[in-house]
Design a protein around this nucleic acid. Sequence first.
DNA 1: CGTATGGTTGAGTCCGTTCAAACTGAGTGG
DNA 2: CCACTCAGTTTGAACGGACTCAACCATACG
Lengths: 245, 245
Amino acid sequence: MEHLGTHRHGDGILGGDRRSCGECEIRDLTFCSVLTAEEMDRVRACRTEVQFAARHTIFHEDDEAEHLFNVTSGVVKLYKLLADGRRQITGFLFAGEFLGLAANRTYAYTAETVTAAKLCRFSRRRLVMLFDEWPHLEKHLLGIAASELIAAQDQMVLLGRKTAREKMASFILKMSERAEARGQDGNPVTLPMNRADIGDYLGLTIETVSRTLTQLKNKGVISLMDSGHILLSRREELDDLAEGF
Amino acid sequence: MEHLGTHRHGDGILGGDRRSCGECEIRDLTFCSVLTAEEMDRVRACRTEVQFAARHTIFHEDDEAEHLFNVTSGVVKLYKLLADGRRQITGFLFAGEFLGLAANRTYAYTAETVTAAKLCRFSRRRLVMLFDEWPHLEKHLLGIAASELIAAQDQMVLLGRKTAREKMASFILKMSERAEARGQDGNPVTLPMNRADIGDYLGLTIETVSRTLTQLKNKGVISLMDSGHILLSRREELDDLAEGF
DNA sequence: CGTATGGTTGAGTCCGTTCAAACTGAGTGG
DNA sequence: CCACTCAGTTTGAACGGACTCAACCATACG
């Protein structure tokens, strides 16, 4: 079924596209920004651009970790499953963001597209060899890892100690900030993921996500333009709600 | 009060102890294991051994991040607070483990001793300079960061999707595994932290921690020798409980 | 001894879940 | 154009697991 969809919708690997790094619009958002022109050539040699339809699995937890990726467009989610199907989404990735760093020999999580998405796919083996040659690239990666660790700790606070309302408020604000960091409009916020994904990211059920959003709407701090577009009517009040005031 | 305690119990900084790296018993557990003898000398020059009593704050969230640390003995906890005092402990650190990596210009969390503890304290500025000279050290740090990210994701699954019983079972097992990785006995497990700390690590209250432990005891999968020492009577069953069977 | 700290146990409450039903909007086909 | 479907969302009612508040117990310490 997945295979049928793969071919029909034209997702899956578009092999051998190694031209477009020069015109890459999101270069400044990625680790490519720290590379010189000559280094870029070397990196391009171990790169393939791949493209997937929405809801396509990029790799599974425990798969052999052959590749590293940069998201160039669209949205990707990372998640882990418990034996009975309970799911925890550990992160959403947008254009410019890196995935695969947390990998050992095998991936520690499943990666799946939320929307249609394009990614730069690198041979893990060959990219790691370049790390050895270019310490400044490794340094940059260490910086990325450090900020992801901080983000992970914030998420632990959210999951362990925040109420449903605080979780939703924090989530909306974070999505808004990240959109702005990418140079997009932070208000209204676009939530490309569905309620199930939001719930599995925040440790809530679909129903609680929905109820909490209508509750915030009734309070007047947000407006739901449609289920995926939220207008922040009173941002300061939302800030307070996120921290528990 | 904290200051009184500081002086009376002899915790706080023991300045200038730069002799003992040679006899360091936990060298193999730390990043020092990747250093040559000459490199060790350079590292020693930016090192001070510090020692704290139990429940002493090593640094606060948002403090200027002047130092990086290796725990050499004892146990340290890292936590973040919400405005109203709710606390999420993001990790417990044992001998050989590194802290400060997630730091920006300021620390992202508070670090406090659980037991009396000794730490190797490094000047952040000077150690980072050494990173530039020794890419293999930086590479090692990147590896540490990557495994901490994986651990953080496991913790998100626990906090977001596991029940109290699954959380407790997972916690006990993880503590046992970590003790074994350090070369200590994994059964019985020693839990050096109190119930409040366990609760704040697992996203539970003190009472739920206590109740869940007695529940596991009544099931016969563990025995409580005393509140800090747990005998794993049926480890496989505990494994199952941790994953939700 | 009395006090303090940490842990356990009990009773009642509540927030978020579960189960169920209704609603919405986009896509499809007659 | 409308009926129908289907996935996603919203809303309602009842339940339950973890929390809150409170009392009690155990151990260490002056």
